[in-house]
């Protein structure tokens, strides 16, 4: 470990420090084949069924933001982790760590929102836990959800399926969640115009697998670290290069303006209702149409492709036809000064 052997906020940023913490501290503690794969969901064989199992903790400030809240986020985030693994979500747990002093009315609002999100996906929250800690020991409320899902029989997704010539699709505009949260937190003038994409991608994922089965090679929800982190990981894990076209990446202009104002690279900004799909070249157009036919995939676009390359890097072909590298983000994004 570096940086003085203490946990920094950047260790939770989804970038390189997070990666390093997981590999040098967390994985060695539990060593097993299933965990070592570090997939969004673990796959476990139970009898003749393959079960997917995942967990995630949610800490977000503010608790309520334009487009969602911590309750909806906690349900959709875990559903998405199951969905991108090619599973049909079956049931969720929901655990609360509440700071002493939180108004019950706020808790009710959060739970109602979580319940609504679960209902929309036809999934039940079947178990949970409640802990209260003294004031100052937590920030209002933290939520953990775990989820189990049944692996779809047609699903054959994994890094090992990816090959040169495959296309990359993103299901809609990127960076909306991260920039909405940041601008709402900082009281920026854009805040009213931006909306988090907080939502489920389960419909998209299920439909893609149903229609295109093994032509869908890989899916991932680009949350922390944004599109950059997801693409870097694909390149790292496959030893293949990736080329993406800046002009093809869907971005909401207000989100872009907010990112520019703070000096952020939109590719590094978190999403909470998007999926990146790697699909075989010949089925890419069909895959795109399926995405667009879904409620949360209307702005989907083919943004690039997997390439054979002596240097397995993610390269962005820019608007002016220049090239630059896209990497796993470093540390925590810090707003710039002027």
């Amino acid at each position: 470990m570096t940086a003085g052997d203490k946990i920094l906020l950047a260790h939770g940023g989804g970038g390189r420090l997070t990666d390093e913490l997981i590999h040098s501290v967390i994985l060695p503690a539990f060593e097993n084949q299933t965990l070592n794969k570090l997939t969004d969901s673990a796959e476990i064989r139970l009898g003749k069924d393959n079960i997917c199992f995942t967990t995630d903790s949610y800490v977000v400030k503010p608790l309520f933001f334009n487009g969602g809240d911590i309750g909806k986020l906690a349900v959709c985030g875990t559903i998405n982790d199951l969905a991108v693994a090619g599973a049909k979500p079956v049931a969720l747990s929901l655990s609360l760590i509440i700071e002493e002093g939180l108004e019950i009315s706020i808790l009710k609002k959060i739970l109602a929102s979580a319940a609504q999100a679960a209902k929309e996906e036809n999934i039940s929250i079947v178990c949970g836990d409640t802990k209260v800690v003294e004031a100052g020991s937590a920030d209002k409320i933290f939520i953990n959800t775990s989820g189990v899902g049944l692996k779809l029989s047609k699903a054959e997704v994994g890094f090992e399926k990816i090959a040169a010539g495959d296309k990359i699709i993103v299901s809609g505009t990127i960076g909306d969640h991260g920039m909405t949260i940041m601008s709402q937190r900082e009281g920026m003038k854009f805040e009213s115009e931006m909306k988090s994409d907080c939502g489920s991608v389960a419909q998209i994922c299920a439909k893609e697998i149903e229609v295109l089965d093994s032509d869908i090679k890989f899916m991932r929800d680009p949350t922390r670290g944004g599109l950059a982190a997801t693409l870097s990981e694909i390149s790292d894990q496959t030893d293949l290069g990736i080329e993406i076209q800046e002009t093809q990446i869907p971005v909401n202009p207000t989100t872009q303006a907010a990112a520019d104002m703070l000096g952020f690279d939109i590719l590094n900004i978190a999403n909470e209702g998007k999926v990146v799909i790697v699909v075989s070249g010949q089925k890419a157009d069909e895959c795109l149409e399926i995405c667009k036919s879904c409620q949360n995939g209307k702005d989907a676009a083919i943004i690039g492709q997997i390439v054979k390359s002596s240097e397995p890097l993610v390269e962005l072909i820019t608007m002016i036809k220049g090239r630059r590298i896209v990497q796993m983000p470093y540390g925590r994004e810090l707003p710039r000064i002027c």
Binding site: D236, L313, Q327, Y330
Partner: peptide, 20 residues
């Protein structure tokens, strides 16, 4: 350090080595 810094920009956008 700075997102505006020349060294960070060179590192992030041109360095052709991989992380490992």
């Amino acid at each position: 350090v700075s997102s505006e810094g020349a060294c960070a920009a060179w590192f992030k956008y041109t360095r052709r080595k991989r992380r490992n």
